[in-house]
Design a protein around this nucleic acid. Sequence first.
DNA 1: AATGAATGAGACTTCATTCAT
DNA 2: GATGAATGAAGTCTCATTCAT
Lengths: 243, 243, 243, 243
Amino acid sequence: MKQSFASASGISKTGRTYFSHRQRQSRRILDAAARLFDERGIDCVTMADIIAATGIRASTMYQYFSNKDDVVWTILGELFADSAVRAKQAMEAGTSALDKIAALLEFMADGLTNDPAKVRFVAQFDAMYARHWPVERLLSLEARISPQGFESFSALIREGMADGSLRPDLDPGLTMHAVINAVIGAQRRLASLGDRVELEYGKPIDVLFREIIRIILLGLRATGPAVAPNIRRPSQPKRKRHS
Amino acid sequence: MKQSFASASGISKTGRTYFSHRQRQSRRILDAAARLFDERGIDCVTMADIIAATGIRASTMYQYFSNKDDVVWTILGELFADSAVRAKQAMEAGTSALDKIAALLEFMADGLTNDPAKVRFVAQFDAMYARHWPVERLLSLEARISPQGFESFSALIREGMADGSLRPDLDPGLTMHAVINAVIGAQRRLASLGDRVELEYGKPIDVLFREIIRIILLGLRATGPAVAPNIRRPSQPKRKRHS
Amino acid sequence: MKQSFASASGISKTGRTYFSHRQRQSRRILDAAARLFDERGIDCVTMADIIAATGIRASTMYQYFSNKDDVVWTILGELFADSAVRAKQAMEAGTSALDKIAALLEFMADGLTNDPAKVRFVAQFDAMYARHWPVERLLSLEARISPQGFESFSALIREGMADGSLRPDLDPGLTMHAVINAVIGAQRRLASLGDRVELEYGKPIDVLFREIIRIILLGLRATGPAVAPNIRRPSQPKRKRHS
Amino acid sequence: MKQSFASASGISKTGRTYFSHRQRQSRRILDAAARLFDERGIDCVTMADIIAATGIRASTMYQYFSNKDDVVWTILGELFADSAVRAKQAMEAGTSALDKIAALLEFMADGLTNDPAKVRFVAQFDAMYARHWPVERLLSLEARISPQGFESFSALIREGMADGSLRPDLDPGLTMHAVINAVIGAQRRLASLGDRVELEYGKPIDVLFREIIRIILLGLRATGPAVAPNIRRPSQPKRKRHS
DNA sequence: AATGAATGAGACTTCATTCAT
DNA sequence: GATGAATGAAGTCTCATTCAT
């Protein structure tokens, strides 16, 4: 059986690392819950279900997690903690701003390929809980996906316009935020629809996702100058109005 | 009071068609439900809530809708029926394939601007129900957003590569599907997060959405230089502000 | 079986007065609850107990009362509504202020004699809920025991000092409030201890209560000699009966 | 921080008597419990609350007290042990019977002024537990408030009628029991209502309490003779039995 | 003496739904 | 077509308490 997505959260079971009993129990619960959430959808899983799946008694469960939100939130936290580190590493590899952005998006594509269940979980979480929990808690968590938080996005665009890797007509205060929101939205939608997309469109979700990344990067990157220093690039016959 | 989003669904009250009492009651229920769904989220609304909001008795409710899914599905159907027609109209206006795509995405941007509640509703529906109902029912519904269904997307890309409005290196069987999924994903994410996005990023959701559309279209369109070195049309003279 | 104290609330079952089914059920619940509260103490009765005693199903119960507080509060309301009317009538009979006070205290003694269960209930309520519910709700209810609310007490003392029936050294803003609080406190304590007092002291609770009333009235009334040495007012010719 | 009312219970920390660890722990528990009882009301405090407040583990708690009743009872016992001694001392100071009674009542007024929390605790205890525990245990405890128990009350009344400080028409087997019950009832009611009384009536609880004491003493004391040696006012021919 | 862990028992409440009138 | 009433079936959570270490 494939590894539960909760247990991937950087806590290694290998080696002689000793889990205390409490930690082990906690993990059993989280793993069981994560599996159920993925199988049935977060809202269709009850505490009773998790309890049954874990094999402990209800009252014991409540010694570990005081309610379903607690479980959900914990899983989410582990997920993000894990992602944040790896996203950072991915971006550091890039040289130009465009490279960095590409690395970040590629990182997300890898997430979709390797852990669609994780993405699906977060997608559900977003759709269901986004409105019920304080913004801060939610967005602060999501912000970790980028190294210094979303605030660094502006800098990235500016950097790219300076180093010539990005189009000169981007808006530092806007573009990257738009891109990241769109890519996250796309990623989650594809993860949520899962195999159905393949059935319908004949393409696996990660192929679709990598295509949209390609298009977006094409849209972001500097055209003429980036390739050749001399500014030709006449064309673009009639940029149509959008809005 | 602004019109409920359900009652806007293309059902005309004009003409001498008289709603029977039954139809009026049904509408009251759907309107009340739609409002509640938007206020609290689909999963946080119970039949009892809808009943209370409508002012009828529980037992009467069941004369109209046999359960919550029935209500949800009906609202969704009205929403899509409405959208399909208008999306089609929007696209017909375009001349080149790029124009048509732009018109379709623009149509979605308008949806986000004018009816965020509708988009939010569909987003929730997707995240929560996608997995519980047969694919056919769901995707068939969504397919209506494009005139001939998603199948026509391949043709559109081919058309664009032929008429020179799109990059020549696109994949007819892939690109448009990728774009549409991403744009839907982005639209729904933004609608779901709503005002929070503005608080966090300082930009309204529709501004973000139009920016990503712009980037995607930039990524799709044929770039003169990339294709041919000859320099006409020196630069995008005045990218207009989007918002 | 003796009449339930809840059902004494001025709602007559006799005659052709028709209770709707709902009212009858509601009464059954209140009666059952009141009996249990008196037998075991309010805090030792659970909703489940009341449900079992009433013979309906749990879910039906919640159609009538949404929780235990609701039941408790309803019973209390009926009790006070009933008392308020009768206390008023009792006081109106008196001529001098002392008579009126005596009538009020006597009314309370009757309550203790005839409905110790009611008093006991209120005593428990007080001790347990006084701190958990908003003052207004509670005191406004209690205030009904006196015709125009406790505010009229000052007037009563002033009236008595004017008509010569009360000691001249009383404090209108204080004395009657002190008296009423003490008498209520005494009444509730005796009701709570119930038969135990008799076992311990060899006197029934109402005998003890009437004795303290007598002492208090002796303490309140004008004493001829104390005021003026000349002996007019030859003795309270008609110590009024209390009971 | 002010001393917990439980730890004031006459347990001396002086001398070289070392509390064993066990005693210290026990005290911590009792203090924490007493504070919680006063803050929330006895019935709203769970073992878990006490445990949390004390900082020990649940299982450790049960090494000291086998259940909540045990804790409650222990606190109550300390309270009474303390009171009994001081009540005795207070009464011994008096010369006439009236003086002794006044001293006793004054002692209770002091209790209300200085330790309303203690009184409140006992009031709650009374209302809630009186019915659940054997009479003997309860009343025997309360009896300690008077030196030789309530049995001595008869003697006190007789003494007062003999020394001329009390009215001659009192009932030795009744009056003092009535008075003490009333005063305890009043004291507890006032303590329970606490600040609310002041808000409602504009007078602090101890002012109200002292006023009722004054009235009762006025009602008890011999009238004519006490003021002037000459005995006129024979009167009051035959105080009839009341009840 | 302390404690980590577990748990039986049950209380409270909600909800969708049915049914007879 | 409307409604009053009832309810089965769950779900969530609390609490006092035990027991082995």
